[in-house]
């Protein structure tokens, strides 16, 4: 049975029992219970009953904590925690790894191995709907194995305080049907079609390519998040802003207004029209320009 139902029903039953004992205690005339009877009551209700309940809960819950088995052919996703975003690399053994950021896609019903680490400070990778949290420690690779059993969108967060924008370091996990996932991964391996234009020129002219990669352009820097498929993500700036043209433009001009402590410099002198052009160009790759 579902953990939540068991806990809710259990808590209700115990609360009712406590109330019943309370009512009985108030109604019973004084002196009815002698010392031995009272001690016996404390022993059974206060010690033996909770011990049995807790033991049963422990025995029931422990098997669920067993780490999932995995094999060498399973999909591997390397995740690196950075202040304050997630660097991703998908490896399924069928070609070069696919680099992405801030949004994880997993196939339903298949085992997925997350190899997590960090580059700056300790972060922690946590998708409450899919598995326990796993610390991301610089210089060390920790492994978390999950398996989504139904399609849907799960929220993931950083679960270890990592700096000013720790609370703004989140991501979505999209559990997709395996065939849809395979199609997505194959297309992510390629170079998306993107309209050339003023946005591309502005992106180069403002030096954005010094930190960001946009596949299919000369920009291949790895300091900031890969922006190749920015347009398909459900959020902007690692779960912080809505995926709109306006918020993208605003973020470009002053990232640390939305994410205090972010490494990206402010471009306050950049006209809003230019920022919007860059945003439009970045978001155009998924065919939903101007969303």
């Amino acid at each position: 049975m579902h953990l939540t139902s068991v806990l809710v029903i259990g808590a209700t039953v115990i609360a009712l029992l406590v109330l019943a004992v309370y009512v009985i205690a108030v109604r019973t005339p004084e002196g009815k219970l002698d010392h031995v009877g009272g001690m016996r009551l404390v022993l059974w209700l206060g010690a033996i009953f909770p011990t049995v309940v807790l033991t049963a809960l422990l025995l029931w819950a422990l098997p669920a904590m067993r780490p999932l088995p995995h094999q060498s052919g399973d999909l591997r996703i390397q995740v690196q925690g950075e202040q304050f975003w997630w660097r991703l690399r998908y490896e399924d053994g069928n070609g070069p790894g696919v680099i992405s950021a801030n949004e994880v896609r997993v196939p339903v019903g298949r085992t997925v191995v997350f190899d997590v680490t960090a580059t700056d400070v300790v972060h922690s990778f946590w998708i409450p709907g899919l598995g326990g949290k796993m610390d991301m420690i610089p210089g060390r690779i920790n492994r978390l194995v999950v398996k989504a059993d139904k399609p849907g969108i799960f929220r993931g967060v950083c679960a270890e305080f990592c700096g000013l924008s720790h609370a703004l370091m989140a991501f979505d996990v999209i559990a997709m049907e395996p065939s849809a996932f395979d199609a997505w991964l194959a297309s992510a391996r390629g170079v998306p079609a993107r309209a050339d234009g003023r946005g591309a020129e502005l992106f180069s002219a403002n030096g954005c390519g010094a930190c960001h990669t946009v596949k299919g352009t000369p920009h291949t820097a790895m300091i900031g998040p890969d922006l190749t498929r920015l347009g398909e993500r459900r959020s902007l700036a690692a779960g912080t802003l809505p995926p709109t043209l306006e918020s993208t433009a605003a973020f470009i001009r002053n990232a640390s207004r939305f994410k205090p402590g972010a490494r990206m410099p402010a471009y306050s002198a950049m006209p809003i029209e230019d920022a919007t052009e860059i945003a439009r160009w970045l978001r155009s790759a998924d065919g939903e320009a101007g969303r």
């Binding site: 033991t55 422990l58 025995l59 098997p63 978390l144």
Partner: peptide, 18 residues
Amino acid sequence: FVAVLFSALPVAFLSDCR
């Protein structure tokens, strides 16, 4: 007694170092 049992029980269920 109960506490020692509780801290020993996970060993029966967990299987690796993760």
